[in-house]
Design a protein around this nucleic acid. Structure first.
Lengths: 337, 337
DNA sequence: GCTGGTATCGATACCGGTACCGATATCTTG
DNA sequence: CAAGATATCGGTACCGGTATCGATACCAGC
C-alpha cells in the first residue's frame, strides 16, 4: 500500500551502501564496484524504486523534456507533425510537452515562456515569424530551438520546413501549364497563419508574372474545415461563375469545395480544377481528382526532434541547421479547355 | 544576455528583503506588508524574473502537469480530445504532457510509469481496459486519474466517456428500423482498441436479438484511414455482393467506402446504407448521406480535464466520478427497399 | 618498509524553491 | 505600565537527487 514514495535513500539502505553509491550504481556512473552495482540494482528492483526526475532536473539543471508549440491540436497537419515528433522521441528518454496557441500570438509568447521555465532540453516552435519580443525570448533561451513548417525567413536557431512561397509559385505555374486562366482563391488564412499567406503571395506573384490575375478572392477567419470549405465555395461561386480553377489554402477546404461541386453537378476537374495543399491521405481516395501539394508533415516532426536530440546529445545549446524538405505537386490533367 | 538564470535570491536582493518574503510576496501567500508586496513584484518585473517550477515542484511535492495518455496522436478523434483538454487547462496554470502509445500495451505501461515519475497533478488515460499491472499502477498512483472514451466497465478512479456497447446496439436497432437486413461489418479494430470491439459486440448482439446475423465481416489490423476504408470496401464487396448496409468501425473508413460506391455507381444510401462512427465534421459535408453516431470528443477532453482540475483544486488525490456523455445517431432514411 | 597510484566509497554542499517556527515590533487591553 | 495579541519578517531545514572532493584500502615497485 505504501505511505510515501520511495527515494534513493531507501534503495541505499536496502542495499547497505550510501546514497551516493546507490546513485552512481543506478546511473552506471563509474566508481562503483561490480558487486555493489548489482546489489543496488537488485535492491532497487525489489523495492520498486522509481527515480524522481524533478529532483534530478533540479540538481543537474537540465530535463528530459522537449517543448513543442503548435497553433492547433485538432488540425490533422499538426497532429501528424506531433506524431513525427513523438516517434523520434519515443525511445530517446525524452518526453514531448505540447503547448497549443490557437494562432494567438499572445498565447504563443505565454506558452513559450511557460515552457522555458521548465528548462527543457530543446524547443520546437511552429513558424518563423514570431513578433520581436517572442523572437528575443527564443534567441536568449540558451537551448536548442527548432522552428518548423517554414523556411522562408531567418530562423533564430534551427529550422525544418518547406519553402512556402515557392510552393505557391510552383502551383501557380502548374495550373497555368494546365491551361487554367480564370483562377480564384479561397482561404482560411487565420491572422497567425503566415504560411498560408506566404503561399498565396507566391501564388499571386507567379500568376502576375504570367500575366494572369485572380478572378476573385474569398478569405475567412474561421479555422479551416471541410464544412467551411463547402460553404465558402458556395459563396464564391455565387459571386464569380466564370471560373476554371480554384486555389484553396489547404486540402480540407478544397475537399469541401469538391463536395459542393459534386452535388451541384459541376464536372471536376473538367470545368473547374480544384487545388488544395498538403496532400492529405484523404485526397487520394476521393471520387474525383483534385490537385494538391504533398508536404512531408510527419518528416518535419521527425527531423525537428532529431535535431533537438543531436544537440542535446552533445550538450550544445544550439542547433544551427536549416533543413528544407521537398514538396511534390500532384496534379491530374483535366480535359484541355 | 545574462550569464545564468535569475533566482528568487536575486529578486530578494533587488527588493531588499529576504528570500522568504520575496517568495511569499510573489505568491500572495500572506504575512507580507502591502509595501513589500509591491516592492518585490516591482523588482521581479524589472529584472525579469521567471520562477522555476522544478524547484517549486520538488519543494512542495506537486507539479502543474497533467499527464495525458492516448493511443494515437494523428487520429483526428484523439486530436480533438486533446484540443478539449488543452482548452480546459489553458488558463488554469496547468500544462498537459502528452504520451502516445500506438495501441501498444507495453508502451502504454511504460508511458504511464514515466508520467507518474513526474508526479503530475493528475492523469488522463484512454480506455478502461488496461491489463492488470497497469491498472495497479493507476490504482496506487495516489493522484486523480480519469479514464476516457469509455464507460463500459469499472474505472480505477474517475471516468468520462460514452457507452460504447450501447452505441453499437442502438445503431443496430436503427438500421433494422430502416429495414436493412443484409448487413456487413468492416472494421479497423486494432488489438488495443477495445472500444471498437465493444461497439461491434453490442451491434451483433442487437442484430441477433432481431433475428439478423451479419452477412460478412472484414477486419483489418491497419490503422484506420479513408484510403484503408476504400480498399476494405472493395474487398468486402467482391466477396459479398448482396448487401444493403455496411457498419464500419468509424467514419474514416466509412467515408472511404462511400467514395468507392460513388465511383462504382452504387447508389448510397438507396442500395447500400453506409454507417460510420463519430460524427466527424467531414461527414456533414459529404455529397451523399451516410449514417453515423455523433460522439462528444471535444467535450470528453474538456470534462476529463475539468475533473482533474477540481480534484487538484481541493488537493484530493481521487476524482471518483463517472460521467457518461450522450451520443446521437444521425441517420437519413434511404428509399425503402 | 615506504611511496605513489588506483579503485572504491561517503560526507558535504549544492540546485531553487517552500514550510515551519521563532524573533521582533507595534498595538490593545485591563 | 505589564501582558498578551497581531502583523511582519527571516533563519533553518527540508524536497530528492548529483558533483566534488577527501578518505580509505589495496596494490605494485623500489
Amino acid at each position: 500500500m505504501a505511505g510515501k514514495r520511495l527515494t534513493l535513500a531507501d534503495v541505499a539502505r536496502a542495499a547497505g551502501v550510501s546514497k551516493m553509491t546507490a546513485s552512481r550504481a543506478l546511473r552506471n556512473a563509474g566508481d562503483v564496484s561490480r558487486a555493489n552495482i548489482e546489489k543496488v540494482q537488485q535492491a532497487a528492483r525489489e523495492i520498486g524504486y522509481i527515480g524522481n526526475p524533478i529532483a534530478m532536473s533540479l540538481s543537474n539543471q537540465r530535463t528530459n523534456l522537449v517543448g513543442v508549440v503548435v497553433p492547433s491540436a485538432s488540425n490533422i497537419v499538426f497532429a501528424e507533425v506531433l506524431a513525427g515528433i513523438t516517434e523520434a522521441l519515443s525511445d530517446s528518454g525524452f518526453q514531448p510537452v505540447i503547448g497549443v496557441t490557437d494562432y494567438n500570438i499572445d498565447r504563443e509568447a505565454e506558452t513559450i515562456r511557460g515552457m522555458l521555465s521548465w528548462r527543457p532540453a530543446g524547443l520546437i516552435v511552429t513558424g518563423l515569424d514570431q513578433p520581436e519580443p517572442t523572437r528575443q525570448l527564443l534567441e536568449h533561451a540558451g537551448l536548442p530551438v527548432v522552428q518548423i513548417m517554414d523556411v522562408d525567413g531567418t530562423p533564430t536557431d534551427g529550422c525544418v520546413g518547406i519553402a512556402q512561397t515557392e510552393a505557391g509559385t510552383a502551383m501557380a505555374r502548374a495550373l497555368i501549364a494546365q491551361g487554367r486562366r480564370r483562377i480564384g482563391y479561397i482561404g482560411c488564412d487565420l491572422a497567425g497563419d503566415t504560411r498560408a499567406t506566404k503561399r498565396r503571395a507566391g501564388f499571386e506573384a507567379a500568376l502576375a508574372a504570367a500575366g494572369v490575375s485572380l478572378v476573385g478572392t474569398l478569405v475567412s477567419e474561421q479555422p479551416s474545415s471541410v464544412v467551411a470549405g463547402r460553404k465558402l465555395t458556395v459563396e464564391f461561386l455565387s459571386r464569380h461563375d466564370d471560373i476554371d480553377c480554384l486555389y484553396y489554402s489547404n486540402d480540407d477546404i478544397a475537399v469541401g469545395g469538391l463536395f459542393h461541386c459534386m452535388d451541384a453537378g459541376i464536372p471536376v476537374p473538367e470545368q473547374i480544377l480544384l487545388t488544395g495543399f498538403n496532400g492529405l491521405d484523404l485526397v487520394q481516395a476521393l471520387p474525383a481528382q483534385i490537385a494538391t501539394t504533398h508536404t512531408p508533415r510527419h518528416e518535419i516532426g521527425l527531423k525537428a526532434a532529431q535535431l533537438i536530440l543531436e544537440a542535446a546529445d552533445q550538450r550544445s545549446n544550439r542547433v544551427d541547421r536549416m533543413i528544407e524538405l521537398p514538396t511534390r505537386i500532384d496534379i491530374t490533367p483535366g480535359f484541355p479547355r
